[in-house]
Each structure stands twice: as C-alpha cells, then as structure tokens.
Simulated assay, not measured.
Amino acid sequence: MAIIEVEGLRKVYRMGKEKIVALKSVDLTIEEGEICCLFGTSGSGKSTLLNMLAGLEKPTSGTIKVKKTRVEKLSEVELATFRQKYIGFVFQSYNLIPSLTALENVSLPLIFQGMPKAKRDKQAEAMLKAVGLNKRLHHKPKEMSGGQQQRVSIARAFVNRPTILFADEPTGNLDTHTTIEVMEMIKDMARKYNQTLIIVSHDPEIADYADRIITLIDGEIRKIEIKKENEREIIYEKQA
C-alpha cells in the first residue's frame, strides 16, 4: 500500500532575478515498509525532494500525500503535529542538543507527546540500550565519538516508533567501519518495526541498503532500480 504519493512536484527558488529549478515535475510513489534511497550528486534535487516529503519546505506546485494527507496544504502548526505523530529524522550532523545527556536527547520527542517523565526515561533508556549505548546514558554529545552521537540520533528518531523515517546523508561524517554499523542498525530497526525508511545519499554503497534506488539528476528522476537478491534491476530509465 502506498504511504507517500507525489504528483507533478516542482520547486523553483528565486535568487534575485534568477530562477533555479530544483525539482521538475516529479511523480513518485513509496510503499509502506519500503526502504528507499533518493540517490544523486550534490545539486541533483534529492535533499529538496526529502524536504518536500517531510513538509519542511512547500512546493512551488504539485501534490504530496503522506498517509493520504495533503501535507503541502497543512499549516505550520498542523505540520508540526503531523511530523510529531508520524515522522522521524536522522541527520548527517546529528542535531543533538549539546547541553543535554544522551538520555535527555532521546526522550525529547516523548516530551512533546505529553508522556510522563518516568515512562519516557524508561523508553529512551531502552532505545539507547538497543543501539549499544547503555553505558553512555548520562554522557553529553561532546563526551561521545561521532559514531556514538549518531547512535543517539538514531535512538531519538526511533523512540516514538514513527511510521516514516527520513535519513539525510546519515553516515556523511562517519568512517567506513562505523558507516556499516550505523546503516545495518537503521535498516534492521526499520525492518523490525515495519517502518518506511527514506535515505538520501550520494554514496552507491549506502544506496545498496535500499529496496529501491531512485536516481535524481538535475531535479528529475532519471532512473529507478529495485534490488533483487544481490543485483539491481532497472525498472525505469529516462534518457537525458
């Protein structure tokens, strides 16, 4: 069943008198429980597309349905509530609050849900243990390595069991060994909870973790591949 449906999505930025077309009439459907990679080089439009899907930016034209809700029609207050209920994020730069401990950072989304402190601390602790940080509960970000900080970020993203998880270049600041650990962790947790995972990356090795790889070039979808066992099959390709 489709969880995200996009039709005719277009985004144009204005810089003075110049118009920059970031997305050109994108049509896309993402299925519930699918692991999908928006793949492309810098400037291809992949991060812009992610921002549109997550309601972080408004499109110039086109429609975006997430769980049958037209997110581009929602107000900022409605969007905040919608994201809080259904969406989680993992960012390249971790986006942790420096003054808070790992436990406090992870429990943050649960505060906005009105969950009592004892319950949210218990849930946050369980998530931190699940990502292997049971000995780092009371450490602040500056007391942890990059890989550990990203694990905190993953725990925070999964703590309220979001329906959809967006991961924007989630391993961009990590070494190769930690990258593999983090990607296996994100993939396994998404599978365990039947969550839809949308990864943005320019790295072919990260794309290999996805069921479907959507390649963007110059703001449009040029190729769609599906992964079958250890091989990719091209199901759509548009010539330049």
Score class of each variant (00 low, 15 high):
Leu74Tyr: 00
Leu9Pro: 08
Arg14Ala: 12
Gly147Thr: 09
Pro98Asn: 02
Gln123Ser: 13
Lys67Arg: 13
Tyr193Glu: 15
Lys46His: 10
Asp175Val: 12
Asn160Met: 13
Asp27Ile: 04
Gly62Val: 07
Lys135Asn: 13
Pro141Arg: 01
Leu165Ile: 15
Ala54Pro: 08
Val152Tyr: 01
Pro109His: 07
Met52Gln: 15
Lys24Gln: 13
Lys129Phe: 01
Lys142Leu: 02
Thr171Glu: 04
Thr196Cys: 07
Leu49Met: 11
Ala54Trp: 05
Gly45Leu: 06
Asn160Cys: 09
Ile3Glu: 05
Ile164Leu: 12
Asn194Met: 04
Ile111Met: 11
Ser99Ala: 11
Lys24Leu: 02
Lys58Cys: 00
Lys119Ala: 14
Asp168Val: 09
Ser145Phe: 08
Thr41Lys: 15
Thr60Leu: 10
Ala167Glu: 11
Phe89Leu: 06
Gly219Ser: 05
Glu57Trp: 04
Leu49Asp: 05
Glu225Val: 04
Met127Ser: 11
Ile226Lys: 15
Val66Phe: 12
Phe89Gly: 08
Leu174Trp: 01
Leu38Tyr: 08
Asn194Phe: 11
Val200Trp: 12
Lys46Cys: 10
Glu18Cys: 01
Arg151Trp: 10
Lys135Met: 10
Ser99Thr: 13
Glu143Ser: 00
Ser47Asn: 09
Ala240Glu: 14
Lys65Gln: 13
Glu184Cys: 03
Val71Ala: 02
His139Val: 01
Asn51Asp: 06
Cys36Phe: 11
Val6Met: 08
Tyr13Phe: 15
Arg232Lys: 14
Ala124Lys: 08
Ile180Phe: 07
Leu165Asn: 08
Lys117Trp: 13
Ile20Tyr: 09
Ile35Lys: 09
Gly62Pro: 09
Gln123Val: 15
Arg14Ile: 13
Val90Arg: 05
Ser47Lys: 02
Glu125Asp: 08
Leu74Lys: 06
Leu50Glu: 05
Met127Asn: 06
Thr41Leu: 14
Pro116Phe: 04
Asp175Lys: 07
Ala130Met: 12
Gly40Gln: 10
Gln84Val: 00
Ala124Leu: 09
Thr178Asp: 03
Ile224Tyr: 00
Val182Ile: 15
Ile64Gln: 02
Val26Met: 07
Leu96Val: 01
Tyr13Cys: 00
Ile154Asp: 07
Met189Val: 05
Thr215Arg: 13
Leu49Ile: 11
Pro170Gln: 05
Lys58Val: 06
Arg120Tyr: 15
Thr215Asn: 06
Ala190Ile: 05
Ala240Ile: 11
Lys238Cys: 01
Arg70Gln: 14
Lys223Asn: 13
Thr81Lys: 12
Tyr193Trp: 15
Lys142Trp: 00
Glu34Thr: 07
Ile213Asn: 13
Ala54His: 10
Lys68Pro: 00
Val26Ala: 06
Ser61Gln: 15
Ala130Pro: 01
Lys238Arg: 15
Pro59Cys: 09
Gly45Thr: 11
Val71Glu: 03
Glu143Gln: 12
Ile154Ala: 03
Pro59Phe: 12
Leu128Trp: 03
Ile198His: 08
Thr101Glu: 05
Val12Asn: 04
Lys192Cys: 03
Leu50His: 04
Ala2Lys: 11
Glu229Ser: 09
Thr48Met: 10
Gln195Arg: 05
His177Ser: 14
Leu38Arg: 04
